[in-house]
Design a protein around this nucleic acid. Sequence first.
DNA 1: TCAAGATATATCGTTCTCGAGGTAAAGAAC
DNA 2: GTTCTTTACCTCGAGAACGATATATCTTGA
Lengths: 184, 184
Amino acid sequence: MAILGFLRDFPLHGYDLKNRVASLAGHVRPVADGTLYPTIKKLEDAQCLTRRTAPGSVAAPRHMLEITQTGTDQLRRWLRDPEPGFLTDDNKWYVLLAFLHHLENPREQALVLARRREFLDTPAQLFFDEHGAPIPPERLDSPFRKGLMQIHRSTNLTEIDWLDRQIAELNRRAGFTATAKDRA
Amino acid sequence: MAILGFLRDFPLHGYDLKNRVASLAGHVRPVADGTLYPTIKKLEDAQCLTRRTAPGSVAAPRHMLEITQTGTDQLRRWLRDPEPGFLTDDNKWYVLLAFLHHLENPREQALVLARRREFLDTPAQLFFDEHGAPIPPERLDSPFRKGLMQIHRSTNLTEIDWLDRQIAELNRRAGFTATAKDRA
DNA sequence: TCAAGATATATCGTTCTCGAGGTAAAGAAC
DNA sequence: GTTCTTTACCTCGAGAACGATATATCTTGA
């Protein structure tokens, strides 16, 4: 998803892509060569991207990669109907969010945000005692677990707040578009 | 790490462990049977844990798992000197944090928190233009990328704040311990 | 001139993880 | 009594990811 998402902005070569993917996802999360290049080849085989060799501006020749219509469609499908992990795993979710603007319809964008919002609403219970009964934060003896739950709650609230404002804004825009269409 | 960390609290059987690991890490991140059971076996082979069969309280018989001294030592090594990924990957970091209290020395605990703190201090640059120049949040046209960076900054500040307070508290306690030792 | 270092792409073997499938025991439902 | 569901454990094959390794190009500087 990150490969196609970046290529949708403008053509890039593998090495550049590698650095961009690495800096994405909140912090630097390096992607191994052994992961990146086979994945590029796989996407090429699936006709999601094309490559043409270009002279390297600094050193060795590059393979400039360009997304195709097939690739764009694939990217949009991934964005529109994300696998569960993309909603529940923060790392994956942030990757998705970084490319959600490629899903041009504001109503569809709002739907995806709403699914994340729904997930964040289900309260996470992290720790349990010997008998499987949940332990509330104030009964935790480890300050680290207390901090973990504090941070977790705080960051969740921050994101929920943003999601709500964003969903409202998107629906407003979707409404305008619909009205404009209705009038036409 | 999560397996040994939970077992350090009290003995558990695989099925219970599975549920606890799943609810850890911020939200529910299910672990497949095909991952859990081979890992338990691997830890058993490495003599990090022992198992004894017990009658199931509800249904099928269980294998109660208990951590050994070898296992405890291994867990402490992982906590004391975490692999880079455990500091840079939020998911992994939160797992580590959930068990950091098993590293009994407050000075060592503070050192681990300081390494995370140091990582959070390096400003994350997420997006770049065609020429590789960083794009500041206000110049981003995607509201999702804007939100992403906002949320990221906000959650980072929350965690940094907590880390600083926690490190100060741990060093205070380490100081007391040292003074007490010096006096003796 | 020639070695060093950054750029750039690719492969290979190992390890990790998942998901599907299978086994089994106990209690509940019918 | 028989089936269903939940609990509980385990294995296997497929696919993903990594780290090491190899190769080639261009610039810089000793």
